[in-house]
């Protein structure tokens, strides 16, 4: 990771003094074909903040992220970008403010890495004009930040899975948006690359940008995010600092798992360990508060 390369030069100093609310969603409801998926979701991301969106499969994480990115409409509620609605901002300006990293990372044509990353500049390009100096600069920074500059001449067929994800992340960085919405950027990455990807997202927040990231890995979520939003049972089950959200009760309710907890060098961590006792069912309230408490003491993995 080349973290210190252009530090400061990218930071918009006017925004770092007090965190601005970049995206604010209030009372969002979404559904598919009349089937409600999410109700009464309130969520905000401020500049310099990393918000983790977690929850079991099918809990609506991607759906919510797509609503936040204005890729699909909400049935109810509003999403505001710096206080304005998407219509007030306009599609092109919104594209410059919000970068979206899709899940899966499909690339349909075998472009060179550099060319692919340059696609992130499309919202800034004027028709029938080549890349400007600012475009080239942004592409260069993105390539270095994501640590893929050495791959720039390769085609997408000539890179590994981990490199591919970093290249796609570089594409999103090249937008130089205020906010990055990333859908499972660590999926299909080995542990080292997962950590690298999360480090990179943290680096982005240090530049004063906001990040909303969908994660499946609770350990990464706990370790890297400033705040977590736990989606389950058709809404927000919990929202707040990781230690507030990732309680035994909530995890049992949301995922039906028990976790192991530990601490090392003053940093606490958790590890999904086994299926929770079968008593949560579809209970949507805290009826089973005491069932899972204290079942296991913190056990430290021997690493």
């Amino acid at each position: 990771m080349r973290q210190n390369k252009e530090k400061g030069s990218v930071t918009d100093s006017t925004q770092t003094d007090q965190p601005l609310v970049e995206i604010e969603a209030s009372d969002i409801a979404v559904g598919f074909n009349g089937m409600p998926v999410l109700r009464r979701v309130d969520l905000a991301v401020r500049s310099g903040e990393m918000v983790g969106l977690i929850g079991p499969n099918g809990s609506g994480k991607t759906t919510l992220l797509r609503v936040l990115a204005n890729l699909r409409p909400a049935q109810a509620g509003v999403v505001r970008y710096g206080g304005l609605s998407a219509d007030e901002i306009g599609a092109r300006e919104l594209a410059r403010r919000i970068a979206y990293l899709a899940q899966g990372g499909a690339v349909h044509w075998e472009m060179r890495v550099e060319t692919l990353v340059a696609l992130g500049r499309l919202p800034h390009r004027r028709p029938f004009q080549g890349p400007s100096a600012a475009d080239r600069d942004a592409i260069e920074k993105a390539l270095w930040m994501a640590d893929v500059a050495q791959l720039r001449r390769r085609t997408m067929a000539q890179v590994s899975g981990g490199e591919r994800m970093r290249i796609l992340l570089a594409r999103a960085l090249a937008v130089e948006a205020e906010t990055l919405l990333a859908d499972e950027p660590t999926a299909a990455l080995d542990p080292l690359h997962q950590l690298q990807a999360m480090d990179l997202l943290r680096e982005i927040t240090r530049q004063g940008r906001g990040v909303i990231v969908v994660l499946h890995d609770l350990a990464l979520a706990a370790r890297f995010c400033d705040r977590l939003v736990l989606l389950a049972h058709g809404g927000v089950l919990a929202q707040g600092r990781p230690e507030e959200v990732l309680t035994d009760v909530r995890l049992a309710q949301a995922y039906g798992v028990e976790v192991l907890r530990g601490e090392r060098d003053g940093v606490s961590f958790l590890l999904p360990w086994k299926k929770a006792k079968p008593c949560e069912g579809d209970a949507d309230d805290d009826l089973n508060t005491s069932t899972n408490e204290g079942a296991h003491g913190p056990r430290r993995p021997d690493r």
């Binding site: 979206y100 899709a102 692919l116 696609l119 919202p123 028709p127």
Partner: peptide
């Protein structure tokens, strides 16, 4: 010809193209 940039954006799928400002 005017659809060129949007087709470039579509390389990464419809969601990404939309997020780049293309309808």
């Amino acid at each position: 010809l005017a659809a060129g940039p949007a087709l470039d954006g579509l390389t990464l799928g419809e969601d990404t193209a939309k997020s780049l400002g293309f309808d």
